[in-house]
């Protein structure tokens, strides 16, 4: 297995997106509109109040922007896996000296980098200059936000890949895509941070892996967790990622086994 092949997957994915010029402009425009809409929603919710549950409006604006950056659209990933399963193309990967999950990871990392550079970054700049964004709460929080960002990306990738792979047994990736969307809307904290939720709900959601996608990385950036808590939650997140990654590896081995034995 040549490790050098994987960056090529990422690069190919990145380049393939350039061909869809209109899609790029439309995504950037759509992202900009949605961003201003969420800023408007929080402005309306605060309705002049300065601090609610320890958070200020500028903090919330920064929160929605960063949380949105972290929660990328998993449709493409789930569809890719679901289609490969449905059409049987997945068997082609078994013939190549490559790991399918690893090539998938590289490909979608390429897509992510593309989306961040071409779509999210310009939007962040526009919002930063027009409305204003807060810097990280401290050097410690800035430095810790980076590993949390990596953890967030891997967590969402694992969740998306799991949903796609489950299509192998459920024969439809569509429904799984929507279930994940629903769970993420509520439990990732991408729209509403956990601190605005009733205690019992944030108590539950705070320990589910979805919160590591948007809520924890953004809360760290804004300095809402002190250093010991930061390390503690990073550890819990890692444990979740290991557990989900293990589950994904197990599912993949089951799928491979089935493909080899039953021929798809």
């Amino acid at each position: 297995m040549r490790a050098g092949a994987y960056p090529a997957f990422a690069l190919t994915a990145f380049q393939s997106r350039l061909a869809y010029r209109n899609q790029v402009w439309a995504s950037a425009f759509g992202e900009l509109v949605i961003s201003f809409a969420f800023i408007a929603i929080w402005t309306a919710a605060f309705a002049g109040q300065v601090v609610v549950d320890g958070a200020t409006l500028p903090e919330m604006i920064t929160y929605v922007m960063i949380a949105g950056l972290l929660y990328w659209n998993t449709d493409r990933l789930i569809n890719d896996v679901g289609e490969a399963v449905r059409t049987g193309d997945i068997t082609i990967f078994l013939l190549k000296p490559l790991s399918y999950p690893a090539s998938l990871l590289a490909t979608h990392f390429g897509h992510y980098v593309f989306d961040q550079l071409v779509v999210t970054l310009p939007v962040l700049l526009i919002v930063g200059f027009s409305v204003g964004l807060l810097p990280p709460a401290s050097l410690f929080h800035a430095l810790m936000a980076l590993p949390f960002w990596a953890l967030s990306w891997l967590m969402l990738f694992t969740l998306g890949a799991l949903c796609g792979l489950l299509a192998f047994w459920l024969l439809t990736a569509f429904a799984l895509e929507w279930f994940l969307k629903g769970i993420m809307a509520l439990a990732s904290g991408a729209i509403v941070p956990l601190w605005f939720m009733p205690g019992w709900l944030s108590g539950i959601l705070g320990y589910l892996p979805f919160a590591w996608v948007s809520y924890y990385p953004t809360a760290i950036y804004l300095g809402k967790l002190d250093p010991p808590a930061t390390f503690l939650y990073f550890g819990i997140g890692l444990a979740w990622l290991a557990a989900l990654g293990g589950f994904l590896a197990w599912l993949w081995s089951r799928a491979r086994h089935r493909l080899i034995v039953q021929g798809g």
């Binding site: 919710a45 429904a175 929507w178 629903g182 509520l186 509403v192």
Partner: peptide, 19 residues
Amino acid sequence: SQGFSYGAMYATIALIIAR
């Protein structure tokens, strides 16, 4: 799944208004 997904989305809006 779509009913669930919309329900969850609406729940987040309800959470904002609840607060």
